[in-house]
């Protein structure tokens, strides 16, 4: 929940509220595929019979999302961007128990 990741401002709005964008540098993206170990998968399978929240997978996706955002920011830093705007997320299920997370946005400079 940081507002600034490694000195790069990340927002999902088209503009940065209260700031002015001076230059667009292109699309940046970051993706990751993560899985939990078998023990947690089996526990989730048991939990699924009873229903409710599957905390193991909530955790998994949270970690994956942080990873994807961090990679996107690293990509933005190679372009010397000061912010990433209009960030979108995409998720896909490859196999049961693994999650592919993809974060993308536009790298910009602002003043």
């Amino acid at each position: 929940m940081e507002q600034v990741v490694n000195g790069v401002l990340v927002v999902n709005t088209e503009t940065i509220p209260g700031k002015k964008i001076t230059e667009t540098l292109g699309v940046v993206s970051g993706s990751t595929v993560r899985a939990k170990h078998v023990g947690k998968d089996i526990f989730a399978l048991f939990k699924n019979i009873v229903g409710g929240e599957l905390t193991q997978y909530t955790e998994l996706l949270q970690e994956a999302r942080q990873d994807a955002v961090a990679r996107m920011v690293a990509d933005a830093m190679t372009l010397d961007a000061t912010a990433v705007v209009n960030v979108r997320f995409a998720t896909s299920a490859i196999t049961a128990g693994a999650a592919e997370l993809f974060a993308y946005g536009t790298a910009v400079k602002y003043e």
Binding site: M1, E2, V11, N12, G51, G52, E53, T58, V69, F89
Partner: peptide, 12 residues
């Protein structure tokens, strides 16, 4: 000031 916030959960 501005910045990204997110929250998630898996429900079945």
């Amino acid at each position: 000031d501005s910045g990204l916030v997110y929250a998630s959960g898996v429900f079945g």
